[in-house]
Design a protein around this nucleic acid. Sequence first.
DNA 1: TGCTACTTTGTAAGCGCTTACATTGAAAAT
DNA 2: ATTTTCAATGTAAGCGCTTACAAAGTAGCA
Lengths: 341, 341
Amino acid sequence: MSKLRSAPTLDDVARKAGVSTATVSRCLNAPDRVVEATRKRVMSAVDTLGYTPNFAARVMAAKRSFTIGAIIPTMENAIFARGLQAFQEELHQRGYTLLVSSSAYRPEVEEEQIRTLVARGADGLLLIGHDRDPKIYDYLERQKVPAMVAWSYIPNARAPSIGFDNRQAMQALADRVIGLGHTRIAMISGFSQGNDRARLRIEGVRDALRRGGLQPDALTVVETSYEVESGADAFAQLMSQNPRTTAILCGNDVLAAGALRQAQNMGMRVPENVSITGFDDIELAQIVSPALTTVHVPHREMGGKAALELVEMVEKSIPGSTIRLQTDIVERHSLGPANKS
Amino acid sequence: MSKLRSAPTLDDVARKAGVSTATVSRCLNAPDRVVEATRKRVMSAVDTLGYTPNFAARVMAAKRSFTIGAIIPTMENAIFARGLQAFQEELHQRGYTLLVSSSAYRPEVEEEQIRTLVARGADGLLLIGHDRDPKIYDYLERQKVPAMVAWSYIPNARAPSIGFDNRQAMQALADRVIGLGHTRIAMISGFSQGNDRARLRIEGVRDALRRGGLQPDALTVVETSYEVESGADAFAQLMSQNPRTTAILCGNDVLAAGALRQAQNMGMRVPENVSITGFDDIELAQIVSPALTTVHVPHREMGGKAALELVEMVEKSIPGSTIRLQTDIVERHSLGPANKS
DNA sequence: TGCTACTTTGTAAGCGCTTACATTGAAAAT
DNA sequence: ATTTTCAATGTAAGCGCTTACAAAGTAGCA
């Protein structure tokens, strides 16, 4: 009783309950493989000792961690929050723990995080978007860690994905903008380098321009970081470049919120003087005023299905399927008809 | 060469480089304890094998994980985002990895997460606020895992904290509101049960009322969840209860944003008809219009200092000190003088 | 009663690392 | 030339768990 007390181990519990360590282990992991009386005795020993199993030891011995890793580009804004929340809830249901880290949109950081998560024994990984160095996929394959991509839908890519067609979704929105008579259109996008979602959304706008009989190459695109501030700056820049622009499509709601604020600061009315659209339909889209016309993404559905699919991949060692989700345009008040200037 | 290739281990590297496992381990963890030539040989073996150390094994052997855990109440909105970002950056600098999980403001969930993080070998923990079952602090002490509290400042509590005086900060803001002639004041707060920050902010308003010669008990407080929607609902409820209310103080910016939206939906002008204030000064406060008058919290400073302090506690096994940060009122446009109705 | 077929529990071999301690050999000191 | 000192490396004992396999006990059945 006088020895320095450190955290109790399985051994301590076993001794206290008068059974072997194997039995204690079974009580914890497969209770029905142990008879009621013994189990009770063990559990009470666990309680009085305040025993918590050592995770590292468990992972090592079992070569399973019941942990899924997710690497998202940013936590600074809520773009991935809701989807991740659903992902995590679904995982929790199935007995898995989620480990999240953010890469700040930096590929090197993402790569490092992937290695860290794998080294930590993650049973599977959730990644955002497909664009990344192929050797990362090689690595994952070698390590036999299944990975699933979300927020993107590209069939036959290196990893299965669950998401939506970014290009088509943005095209639909741009069609609508053009349908309202806008011809002098500009775009504020996130950096498209290494970001298939951003890249495809730009393409989507070009598609719509083409379909609408407009010159796709004439589209001015400012690429910037996904921050409110950047959206504001980009808007100012675009407007000084071409003051006659009547519609600005933004790569996501955060950029749109920034653009909107800047428009108001510059004394412009939205949508009377200029229309602004977003993408994602995060909470922010409804908070700003006028509320943003944007593309609604089924965040929770995406997160939930990604979890299901990934757990399947992990538990049954199957390849995992690629699923396409629907998006739709939600019309609010930041997009209006083009006014003849 | 034909055997099933699984992830390479330290042993494989050692064999390939023709040294002992101890040497390989030293190359990785204390490169200067190994002579240049050997190190090079080892490193190249590491490279060609694509070796990644097994984290669980390392934690087990070293009884250190270089991992810090943080449990925040929510990731759904950006309240903790910026502070956490700074926390993580500072940790990274010092060679630590951050593991984040969210408790959804549920004490049982928080407790479970704490156990999980400890079992995972976290070297230290960051917790939000002081209010929690004392037995959790006992547990942490028994497990010898240092913990630091942030977003709160309470000297001589069970854990050291780095934060601000929620009560005083809110009082200062309420003073200002009262100074503008408001007498029919209401408050929208987060649930105060188990949340010292919410509780103290309410007290702060009462203090100000008292100091201003008003009846502190007459303050109507609606407690709700920290969501935009809830803020909106609470606003509607408050206004139907007492339509003559001229100022509504909100427990944070998210609630304020909801209240603001609802006010506008109800056709009221802010701040002409009703004043609304926030707390935290997250990005959102500047995005809504009118921009919120709110209490600015030094998020990044708090996160950074918390990291420094916690790392000290972990590495030097010292108790850790409690630090108080300053907050200040940022006047924007949602608070105006009371109008005589 | 003797045998088979289970069910319940125990034994012990790792899992992949770190690190205290032992060993070696060469430079520095005498 | 001999001893001391120290830097570089190796040896091997765990860290706390899981699980294949073995052992023991219990029940069913002819």
